[in-house]
Design a protein around this nucleic acid. Structure first.
Lengths: 166, 166
DNA sequence: ACTATATTGAGAGTGAGTCTCATAAACAAT
DNA sequence: ATTGTTTATGAGACTCACTCTCAATATAGT
């Protein structure tokens, strides 16, 4: 298992609760706790999936996962990505490309956003500075309240062309 | 044809170019200009589609369009939504729901963002104030430059539960 | 009107993701 | 350890949003 994806380039060191995963700390422990909270088992196949995603260090699609770990069964991977998403371990990123992307959710991964290529759909992570984040948060909470929405998280995505599709 | 969707509640009155559509001005003229710029024809079917979307006044899915205008052919509507998207008339919003949502693109519609229900996928528009927008823009341009991305537009989406799915 | 080009519509086709179900693994309690 | 109970697995069938095909039709230019 390698380092978890971290767009800011430094080690993951902060967070508001005890489940933030530090560069060399116990990812599996944190994932297991999330799963247990939702009455799911942390099986060997799910560990393999988590390891594969951690090794990738960036948002991945199903083909990415299968080509990195060909012994995993596609139907089980889809089912387990769903379980991990329900447990708050993984976020699904839906783009115009053929496949959805998956990456570790906060607070397993520090807060960040996405550059999305509108041609090939590839996703790359980046961070905004704290000042901007706070202002966005305040604006979003206000808007959500007015519309009767219960806010869970925000996405700030930039759509454009990646270096390859330019 | 009714008013175009406008999350801020007031009339659409500003914009950086001449194609911004005011509440009572010529939507079809602006759409026709966009299509012509891309060597597409503004046919009767495309007008019907544009009218249907304008009448809805909010992001719509293909079933929304067909149930509002049952004489439109689904395959043509899909094809024409694609043409309108390529021409910059329409934006596609991909969510976890079964269907993609479509709405008028900027600058036909004033700048705004989306509340997206993570359960049913429904999309609602809202605005952020100008100060926040400017800061977000600056942060995104910087991030895009570092990653070699060519920025086109940004999306600030809030994901949560809509009043019905709460 | 005539020609060249773009669009239409009905239905066939595609493919990412989901569902089924028989088998296997994980947990609990004795 | 053994048994019983619940949950997970995997192969493949299946769904269905969306795209493609192609003959018929509408549009624009001359």
């Amino acid at each position: 298992m390698s380092l978890i994806n971290n767009p800011s380039g430094g080690a993951l060191t902060t967070g508001r609760d005890g489940d933030v995963v530090h560069a060399d700390s116990d990812l599996h422990g944190a994932v297991g706790r999330h799963l247990a909270r939702h009455d799911y088992r942390y099986t060997a196949g799910r560990r393999r999936l988590v390891d594969t995603m951690a090794d990738a260090g960036k948002p991945v699609t199903l083909p990415d996962i299968i080509s990195a770990s060909p012994d995993l069964s596609p139907s089980s991977v889809y089912r387990n990505l769903d379980v991990l998403e329900r447990s708050g371990v993984v976020d699904r990123i839906t783009t115009r490309g053929d496949h959805a992307f998956f990456e570790f959710a906060e607070p397993l991964l520090s807060h960040h956003h996405h550059l999305i290529c509108i041609d090939c759909g590839i996703v790359k992570d980046f961070c905004l500075d704290d000042e901007v984040e706070k202002r966005v948060d305040r604006g979003l909470l206000e808007a959500a309240g007015e519309a009767g929405f219960t806010p869970l998280r925000h996405n700030v995505d930039l759509h454009g062309y990646c270096p390859d599709c330019k």
